[in-house]
Amino acid sequence: MTVILTENLTKFYGEHTGIKNINLHIKSGEIFGLVGANGAGKSTLLKTLLNFLHPSSGKATILGLDIITQSAQIKKKVGYVPADVRYYTCLTGEELLRYTLRFHGRKDDKSIYTLAEKFQLDIRKKIQKLSTGNKKKVAILSALIHDPELLIMDEPTSGLDPLIKNIFFDLLEERRQKGLCVLVSGHNLDEIQEYCNRVALLGEGEIIDIKDNAQASAAEKAKKVILLCKDIPLGLLKELAGDSLKIKGERFTFDYSGNIEQLLAVLSQYTIEDIAIANMDLEQMFLQYYKVKKP
């Protein structure tokens, strides 16, 4: 089932472009990621879909409903996690979550306590006394407690500790299998790559490319390797790393798109003091795409 459908969705702030000609088709049971540099248009896109901002042109529907004229109906079925959580500081987490349920016409508060326990959140505390991470948990709970069909999240994991991130992504996966659609923007490309089915790269308000993680080529799944090693031959490293090799004393940094097991097998023959292998970071990925599309 189509959850989000946009046709040439465009938003200008005066002469400045927020988003331009965004065409998306996102289905239920899909986790769709948005990545891009600051000001690329990620938040503008999310806010336009939620009718916080009015589009300059183009149109969009969520669950078949128009984002402008039927926004209140849409929000009955949507949960939203903002990047910067700014809730009523005079309320406790419990009070705020209860208000969320009432706004959605729900009277049963059981889900508040179930989710709060899962996320290890003390909901009796006033929001003003909560840490950034705990405020984010309140926002996540507020977005989930009414069982939405679509979850829109702007940098949802910033401030969360790794344990809670795992709980959060497990819950997302559980709900995704039941048909939840997720639109998430973020700067953590590792998370986006790991959990999203498809990822759109945004630059200057436009979609530069949409990657399907399941169909991504080996080259697209490139890793960044940071190696601290005294005795590895430079020739071998150049062979493994190609042009991407950077040398700083005994520290070698390079991009690697081959088989990781084979790489480790080769490296294990030498004295490795330290090694870090990570998905290529957002900036590198973004710049790589940007150079290709806009030379």
Binding site: L50, N51, F52, A72, K76, R86, Y88, T100, F103
Partner: peptide, 17 residues
């Protein structure tokens, strides 16, 4: 100014409401 309106905008309420 406080940003709390973002919470209300995410609820099923129209601007008029």
């Amino acid at each position: 100014a406080d940003g709390t309106i973002e919470y209300l905008y995410a609820m099923p309420l129209s601007r008029k409401q």
